[in-house]
Design a protein around this nucleic acid. Structure first.
Length: 597
DNA sequence: GCCGTTTTCGGCCCGACTGTTTTCAGTCG
């Protein structure tokens, strides 16, 4: 059973307990256990095999360990089942509605037997909610709006979609006038999570004598942002609104002097912050979104930058991508944080498509765009013939394509072109091109595009067979998921890792925001096993080459260092780091034009 | 349900905002 499945069962139990009126600590314990297991990079199933490993986890006692074992053994949890006998499962949907929480949901259930979004909508439309304690005309309206949103939206947004909105909004806010110093995105977006629920933006105000007036004026200005669909809150220091695509944005207006504390607080994660606050308390301080202050006397210890707050807490600066309560605080304490890979480290992009298969641009255009990004080399990797919808190349066309790539080396200087292919892994694990043709390629990237629902054993065998092929060098988008749309393939990733490590096959972190595959926790596990990583965009146009940053941010979330990523190496070293080819000529740089003496 | 150099019982992060109240409960992040 996968960690996220165990986490889901525990989380739902926590939610049901809260609706059921359990005391705060009890459902919190379930919530915390769910969080912990969801973010674990070891498999909970493995840990549970050891008698004592589970209770060594923070917040897991004997009781919770037994519950986890029950879930692993039976696939469900008796308390959850019991609660679902009492409440319909649809009652959990109500928690996603803005302005409805467990208390009100419990009250509605008790009074009307309300358990579905449709039930709530009916009550609101019949104006029956408003007479109920704690509800009024206004909250009735708010609930109707929330139901609108619920019906229109899936609730999560891809990283690049939020990036676009964040950049546009921050640019608009910076143009507010002299009162505004800067606008900075925070929240899970800053941590680089693969999907984002809502966007947090911090706006720092310049100090001045007209402060309250300025803050109010800036808030007014922000609420005139053309992208706004609906204003949700308009307070003194905070405004919230929905954008036209239903992304919720929370903007906080604050003084520059507490920017660091606010950035830390609103970047999260919640769990990371809880640990920092606990640490602050132990040191005789208290940490909130305004400052790190002395418990007695309230003197400010640090507030202006995140760096100085970490320093005061005797911690090395923790990059936002690591703030997930997954060992980063103890690593920061011991000075053992990884030297994370950065976008500037990347010297080449190793997966991209051209007009030969399903790309929009030519070899030369891709080369020029990559050179403009400062890359030293690229691998052109069009699809092989099995991907007929993408006009994939057979042996003959591949050989032609290789010749075109060689010719491009002469035409476009200042970047090295590697002849590659994204070769399909067929249903039985064979590769979609002949060995003779594979031997002509500089880079062989392999991936699955068909029969994606094979059962676990067959899919595992299939990938293992592909790794056994001596020409296989890189496995692209190894789990095949499409974020928010398609689940990962079912196979034994452990076995694949083991075989890939042994064979010297590199694993791709596909930078496309729809994929981000391998994902953060898989990357961390790969790194722990010493696997080679490449980060590639899978670009289908020159524009897509710019998606590299999402791959890098995902790798950073997986604790990946520059030394783990082979496309941070100069060309010669990179080629040596690839699995050696059994036959075929090694890549030769085009000869420099000979100077006549 | 977990946890403990203020506690083996009594707390569980905590501050802002909203809408309901007439001093506060519920929700949210």
């Amino acid at each position: 059973m996968e960690n996220h499945e165990v986490a889901r069962i525990l989380r739902e139990t926590a939610q049901l307990l809260e609706i059921d009126g359990a005391i705060i600590g009890r459902y919190r314990t379930y919530e915390k256990a769910a969080q912990l297991i969801g973010g674990l990079h070891e498999r909970i199933e493995e840990l549970a095999k050891d008698e004592s490993k589970l209770t060594e986890l923070p917040g897991i006692g004997d009781g919770m360990a037994a519950h986890i074992r029950e879930i692993l053994a039976t696939g469900d949890y008796s308390l959850r089942k019991k609660l679902l006998n009492k409440y319909p499962a649809t009652i959990l949907d109500l928690l996603t509605l803005q302005s409805l929480g467990p208390k009100k949901i419990a009250a509605l259930w008790k009074k009307f037997g309300t358990a579905t979004v449709d039930d709530v909508e009916k009550l609101a439309r019949e104006e029956k909610l408003r007479d109920f304690p704690g509800f009024g005309e206004k909250s009735e309206q708010n609930i109707l709006k929330a139901i609108e949103v619920f019906k229109r939206s899936t609730g999560r947004f891809l990283l690049n979609a939020v990036d676009r909105e964040a950049q546009a909004l921050c640019k608009y806010i910076r143009e507010a006038g002299d009162a505004v110093e800067d606008a900075t995105p925070a929240g899970s977006f800053r941590r680089g999570k693969e999907t984002i629920g809502d966007l947090d933006v911090l706006v720092t105000m310049r100090p001045g004598k007209d402060k309250p007036k300025n803050v109010a004026a800036v808030a007014e200005y922000i609420l005139k942002y053309p992208g706004i669909e609906q204003v949700l809150a308009h307070g003194e220091n905070k405004v919230s609104f929905l954008l036209k695509n239903n992304l919720q944005v929370d903007v906080r207006l604050l003084e520059k002097k507490c920017f660091g504390a606010a950035l830390l607080y609103f970047t999260g994660s919640k769990e990371h912050n809880v640990v920092l606050r606990g640490r602050a308390n132990d040191m005789g301080w208290t940490l909130n979104e305004y400052a790190l202050t002395e418990l007695k006397g309230g003197k400010v210890v640090a507030a202006k930058t995140e760096e100085e707050i970490y320093t005061k807490l005797k911690l090395k600066y923790v990059p936002p991508e690591l703030r997930e309560h997954c060992g980063e605080v103890s690593a920061a304490e011991e000075g053992k944080l990884p030297q994370l890979v950065s976008l500037a480290d990347i010297r080449g992009d190793l997966q991209m498509h051209t007009v030969a298969s399903d790309g929009k641009n030519t070899i030369e255009e891709m080369g020029e765009a990559a050179r403009a990004l400062g890359y030293e080399y690229i691998a052109l990797t069009d699809h092989s013939k099995a991907v007929t919808v993408a006009n994939g190349l057979d042996d003959k066309r591949t050989l032609e394509h290789i010749r075109k790539i060689h010719a491009a080396r002469e035409r476009v200087r200042g970047i090295q072109f590697l002849a590659g292919m994204e070769v399909d892994i067929l249903k039985d694990g064979r590769l979609d091109l002949s060995d003779e043709v594979l031997a002509q390629l500089d880079v062989v990237v392999v991936s699955v595009h068909s029969y994606m629902n094979l059962e676990r054993a067959a899919m595992t065998e299939r990938i293992l067979a592909a790794i056994e092929n001596p020409y296989t060098q890189i496995i692209a988008h190894p789990t095949g998921r499409l974020i928010l749309r398609r689940d990962a393939f079912d196979y034994d990733l452990e076995k694949i890792y083991e075989a890939a490590a042994k064979a010297g096959v590199a694993m791709e972190c596909n930078a496309h925001p729809d994929r981000l595959d391998l994902k953060d926790i898989h990357l961390r596990a790969a790194r722990d096993r010493g696997l080679k990583i490449v980060i590639s965009t899978d670009a289908h146009s020159t524009l897509h080459l710019q998606l590299m940053k999402y791959g890098v941010v995902t790798a950073r979330r997986g604790w990946i260092e520059k030394k783990d990523v082979i496309n941070t190496l100069p060309l010669d070293a990179f080629l040596s780091a690839l699995r050696p080819k059994p036959h075929g000529k090694p890549y030769a740089k085009p000869a420099a034009k000979r100077k006549t003496a």
